[in-house]
Amino acid sequence: MRNGVKTWLPGLLLVSPSIVLVGVFVYGLIGRNVYTSLNVTRNIVTDKIVNPGGYRNYTKLLGSDDYQHALWNLLVLTVVFLIGTMVMGLLWSVLLEKGARGEGFFRSVYLFPMAVSFIAGGVVWRWLLSPAQGEGQALGLNQLFIKLHLDGLQNQWWSSPSAFSMAAMAMPAIWQLSGYIMALFLAGFRGISDDQREAARIDGASEWKIYRHVLFPQLSPIALSALIILGHMSMKMFDLIYSIAGPNSYKAMVPATLMWTQMFASNDKVAAAVNATILLVIVAVVVVPYLIYTNRTEQEGR
């Protein structure tokens, strides 16, 4: 630590406006939201208790069918989205990492959906994932399947009756974010010195073995970062689902969209606050250990 208050105090002063703003708007509002979530509320007309207050508001939401349905959807969405995006991103980076002619072009193409808003992407994907089937009806991908004589592939996508229908909702998300993961992995590959490959090659290792035992292990910190980023994006994904399925869709409901329904369709602010608090806890469980871990490794590296 530097010598004396006189040296560091100006620094603290320069950051203090931001400390106040983050303190109030992030931590203060989180506190306020948790406080709201504990309230007791009654139905205005019947005076029956809607939210019993305290922790029972939480057990009420956690036990409700709607919320469990939303959690299940979130799980399906997250698993398919994470696997799909990681596999695509890694595959693209492997295809590009040795340098290909036109690399810049492919990189830009793969990454461009990241520059588009989820709302704009969602509007297109709503059309692509239109549930209508059969000649004269089908739009989007179903129509494309008909054109390609792959009629059997037609399906109702996210609105199909299957319990796993949210897997279809992961498609637009994979489309938007695979390029980002590719960029992360590509930077990782380029950070590995060529000598290591050469050494392994001289030892007679096959290309696959070089990836498996030399390159991939060194990418694992990047893979961890990528998983955390994608995971927390998936937990709070709202725009895309809202835009594709519309507001108040039961079929495509996840906690983030259920919160919208609670707030505006059911006019139950307390239940919405409970939902939001649980969402925060889920994200924090993933993110806080990661932040502590990166903070510590950085301290050690200094």
Binding site: L29, H232, K236, A256, M263, L280, V283
Partner: peptide, 15 residues
């Protein structure tokens, strides 16, 4: 600060 980057904004939206 960094934690503020990761929070779901739903958690502050109502207040």
């Amino acid at each position: 600060f960094l934690f503020g980057m990761f929070i779901p904004y739903q958690a502050v939206m109502i207040p």
